[in-house]
Design a protein around this nucleic acid. Structure first.
Lengths: 117, 117
DNA sequence: CTTTTATTTTACGATTTCGGAAAATGCAAG
DNA sequence: CTTGCATTTTCCGAAATCGTAAAATAAAAG
């Protein structure tokens, strides 16, 4: 039980977090090292509170983390956050290739039967 | 110019397509081979038109393709669709590791200066 | 203690998403 | 040519997104 639609929320939020170029840009920025909210917001045309919302989305997707010291909050990448997506993709590509292998052996068998007929 | 926010629409739609467990389930189903709309919809609790919308989202994200023969439309995976995401992730993980290497050599240099001081 | 500065909260629209019901198309059979 | 089946279209409503402005906090500095 609970295989689907229980933990999926995590992958949902993770993929959703990456489905926006502003947020992907933030990830790029953070891949270079921890950064404060103000610094993160500076390059963007949008208002700072808007950037904060994007950061919140990234954080709820587990892609980034943050901590506050004094009045400045610093964001950083979550170490192996992207590994979960990497694996999800790998499993599907494997399934795809498996299907290809099956097709291959099926055709091989067809050819074999053709010889005998 | 146009580095960001031009082609991004593709990644936006691709990630967005995967940010839903129903759609990820559809991808799993299609990874096993081409399937008609009716067959794809059967396992789900939701109405068929709703599943069709999900398929449309997957298709607009380039993850699946379809063609119609007679009155039945068959969906199939787009061959290397997931490769784009795989690469996006790989680049970010590489950036992350690069940062780590830099930190490493920085600390090494610090230690070296410490010896001379 | 008053003034910055950095972040956060609140309240709002415009738009998109997600799911559904019901009617409409279009091809296939009988 | 009437019926049945697969898909598609249209219209709806609830909820979530995305971005904004303006006010509220809260720590730092003068």
């Amino acid at each position: 039980m609970m295989q689907t639609e229980f933990q999926p929320a995590i992958l949902d939020r993770m993929f959703h977090a990456l489905a926006d170029s502003t947020r992907r840009d933030l990830v790029d920025r953070l891949s270079a090292g921890p950064t404060s909210v103000k610094e993160l917001a500076a390059p963007f045309a949008m208002a700072l509170p808007s950037v904060m919302k994007h950061l919140a989305v990234l954080e709820s997707g587990g892609l980034v983390q943050s901590d506050k010291t004094g009045r400045v909050r610093t964001y950083r990448m979550t170490p192996d956050a992207l590994t979960m997506i990497e694996r999800w993709v790998a499993v599907r590509k494997a399934a795809w290739n498996r299907r290809f292998d099956q097709l291959e052996s099926f055709l091989a068998e067809e050819a074999h039967e053709g010889e005998q007929a």
